[in-house]
Structure formats: structure tokens, C-alpha cells
């Protein structure tokens, strides 16, 4: 059986003011039961009232605020460090890729083998010799990478200082 629109009217704020609904309730036990159930639920909700937190809630919030700030600072530091490392790695790989692209494949192979041997032996004289064997493009690319990195770090530092200064101004 379709109980509309009575079922909708049952949940309105003043169902007792609706004569059509009241008439329907006289003859419909299903809607009568629904109305009684809903009134019982409402009564239960009214009795429940509002629950308060344990005393000291705002003090715990303040303590939590300090902790969250520290965590946020640490996360920022980790993010910057990983950004720096990733860019360094990408720059080095790009520099090597550029150099390898302009060199003969055999030359690249020889260079890699020699570099690996030098690093494994860790002989200072060999290390110096290894630097001498580097193609002229490599120091240039390395310098370019280093300079771009210094510029990027400078910009990051400047931005941090600007934000701290602005925060300080706002607190005044």
C-alpha cells in the first residue's frame, strides 16, 4: 500500500495540525506505528542532549598546536632536502647525458670503466688524472648545474625570509 503523502507529513514539525493526516491515522495502523516509532526516536534524541569533552580541551589543543607546527616544519625540511637531492641527481644525469650524446660510444664506455676503477682504488694520483681525462664539456655543465642550484637555493632562502618577516609584521 502506498502511504504517500501521509508518510511525509508524519515527519513534519506539527503533524497534529494536519487534519488529512489525522484522518488517515485513524484508519492506517502502519502509519500509526511509524508515527509512534518516530516520536520515540525523537524523544530519545531530545533526552540525549549535548556531550562535553573532558576538562582541559583547549589546553590540549594548544599543546597539540606546538607539536603540529614542529611536525609541519620537519616535513618542510624533508621536502626541501628531497627536492635538492632530486634536482642534483637530475642535473648530474642530464650533464652526463649531454656529454655522452656528443661523445663516441666507445669513449663513454672507457670513461665509465676508468671512473669506476678510480673510485674503487681511491688513489689520489689516479683521481687527479681522472679529472684531467674529463672532456671539456663536463666541468662546464657541472658549473652550470652548480650555479643554477645556488640561484634556486637563494630564491628559496629569500622566500622563507620574506614569509618569516611578513608573519612577524602581522603579529605586531
Amino acid at each position: 500500500m502506498n502511504h504517500q503523502p501521509f508518510e511525509t507529513w508524519l515527519f513534519e514539525e506539527s503533524p497534529q495540525d494536519n487534519p488529512a493526516l489525522q484522518e488517515h491515522l485513524q484508519t492506517c495502523p502502519t502509519c500509526q506505528q511509524t508515527q509512534q516509532n518516530w516520536q520515540a526516536v525523537r524523544q530519545q534524541m531530545q533526552n540525549a542532549g549535548q556531550v562535553a569533552p573532558r576538562p582541559g580541551f583547549s589546553a590540549r589543543w594548544k599543546a597539540g598546536l606546538e607539536q603540529r607546527r614542529l611536525q609541519a616544519r620537519q616535513r618542510r625540511q624533508v621536502l626541501i632536502a628531497s627536492l635538492v637531492m632530486t634536482t642534483l641527481l637530475i642535473t648530474s644525469l642530464a650533464a652526463f647525458g649531454l656529454w655522452a650524446a656528443f661523445s663516441a660510444p666507445a669513449g663513454v664506455l672507457v670513461f665509465l670503466t676508468r671512473s669506476l676503477t678510480t673510485l674503487l682504488t681511491l688513489n689520489p694520483r689516479d683521481t687527479l688524472q681522472w679529472f684531467n681525462t674529463l672532456p671539456p664539456a663536463v666541468p662546464l655543465l657541472f658549473s652550470l648545474g652548480l650555479v643554477s642550484w645556488l640561484i634556486l637555493l637563494g630564491l628559496l632562502g629569500f622566500n622563507t625570509l620574506r614569509r618569516i618577516t611578513r608573519q612577524g609584521d602581522e603579529r605586531l
Binding site: 556531550v51 569533552p53 580541551f57 583547549s58 602581522e170
Partner: peptide, 25 residues
């Protein structure tokens, strides 16, 4: 809004009950 944490803590104190009750329910 000007960065005073104590002022925000006072707001926490004032509105802790309705917020907590909503979360509790």
C-alpha cells in the same frame, strides 16, 4: 586572525562543546 594563539584558544574554549558533541554523535 592577527596571529594571536591565545585568542584562538579562547575560541576553542567557547566552541569545544558543540564541535565535540557533533564528532561524538
Amino acid at each position: 586572525l592577527q596571529g594571536d594563539d591565545d585568542a584562538f584558544a579562547a575560541l576553542v574554549e567557547a566552541y569545544q562543546r558543540p564541535v565535540y558533541n557533533l564528532c561524538y554523535r
